[in-house]
């Protein structure tokens, strides 16, 4: 479920980074407020490493012959509490992005939101905790884990669909994409929920105090939750409304519908004033391609397309030649003694 940079537009990426940064900032404040005992700092790090290790261990999925691994968000939240688990999750996602090419650097905000915020600050306090809080029994732990993991994963994959579609990189329609993602993640969620339940039940039997301390240490005040939800709704509105409308002035949105309606990718705009203005706009805009104009303002898309292919191939050739020349010089210099 890690999103790569290639699946995001700048507008969506920036919004999600801002939202996640804001929520992490709030979480750090909360952690400082509840006076996180210093023991928890290395604990969070080691548990982060545990989630990593846990993700490397494959288990067989009964009846399918295939294998999978757990995500570990709810597991982490139930061991560390919501805010510390979010910080830990963010660190895990950053390391995964840097060292395992799992998710992009600019998509980090989205990934933290989809897999961290939704799991640790939505599914855990709204689903897992209320069920466990009244009474901690193996049955309740099982129900809470399965529900929290499944719903968390459903919300997460829904967010992935929203962000990808808003970015305009896929030709899949919103509903088609959704119908691909949700059922797969429902199955994954149920399996991961069941595994999480057995792990937590094992901990419950062996070292119950670990689960108790996570419930006790990081109280979620209702006010703070409201704020988090408010931020989320606000972010959704911005992403879904203003920014994505701006971003999807790409062919996926407006131009695309024009293309479908009129049977051409462009509206007629042959007047010289119009072309001059469009050229001027392309030269001056910060992100010129967000305006509806073909690449050079050339009225003929075919010639631009062919020029693009020829020029692109030539640029590629030049890149390869530059690489070969550079490699030749590097090798020649490598043979020389260093002064």
């Amino acid at each position: 479920m890690h999103m790569s940079d290639a699946l995001l537009s700048v507008a969506v990426g920036a919004t999600m980074t801002a939202v996640s940064t804001g929520i992490i900032g709030t979480s750090i404040k909360k952690i400082n407020k509840i006076e996180l005992e210093e023991k928890k700092i290395p604990m969070m790090g080691v548990m982060g490493a545990f989630v990593f290790a846990a993700q490397m261990i494959n288990f067989t999925i009964p009846g399918t012959g295939s294998s999978g691994h757990i995500g570990g968000g709810i597991l982490l939240a139930s061991l560390l509490g919501p805010y510390p688990s979010l910080i830990t999750m963010a660190s895990i996602l950053l390391i995964q992005c840097l060292f395992f090419a799992d998710g992009g650097l600019l998509a980090l905000g989205s990934n933290i939101f989809n897999m961290g915020v939704i799991t640790c600050l939505v599914a855990y306090p709204l689903i897992y905790k209320p069920i466990i809080k009244r009474e901690m029994t193996p049955k309740r732990i099982t129900i809470a884990s399965i529900l929290a993991v499944t719903i968390g994963l459903q919300l997460g994959s829904f967010a992935v669909v929203l962000e990808t579609v808003a970015s305009g990189v896929t030709e899949l329609s919103f509903l088609t994409f959704l119908s691909f993602m949700q059922p797969i993640h429902l199955v994954i969620g149920l399996i991961e929920g069941a595994i999480t339940a057995t792990v937590l039940n094992f901990i419950y039997q062996m070292r119950r105090e670990i689960l108790d301390s996570a419930l006790r240490k990081a109280p979620m005040k209702p006010v703070s939750l409201k704020r988090v939800l408010f931020i989320m709704v606000f972010a959704t509105l911005i992403t879904g409304g203003l920014l994505s409308a701006y971003a999807s002035s790409s062919p996926d949105g407006l131009e695309w519908s024009i293309a479908n309606v009129m049977g051409t990718t462009e509206l007629e705009n042959n007047t010289s004033v119009h072309n001059t203005l469009l050229n001027l706009q392309e030269k001056t805009a910060i992100l010129p391609d967000y305006s509806i104009v073909n690449e050079t303002g050339d009225p003929s898309p075919a010639s631009t397309g062919i020029a693009g292919v020829l020029g692109g191939l030539f640029t590629l050739l030049m890149t390869v030649i530059a690489g070969v020349v550079l490699m030749y010089f590097k090798k020649r210099n490598a043979g020389r003694p260093v002064n």
Binding site: M47, F50, A54, F59, T60, T198, F202
Partner: peptide, 29 residues
């Protein structure tokens, strides 16, 4: 003959790993 850990054994397996990690974190601290 097992290719991976059976799903039913994952609970005790990961649970054990958690407990070991917790104890290690304690020692590190």
């Amino acid at each position: 003959k097992a290719k991976a850990i059976k799903a039913k054994d994952m609970g005790p397996f990961l649970g054990q790993l958690i407990i070991r990690s917790f104890d290690r974190a304690e020692r590190i601290y």
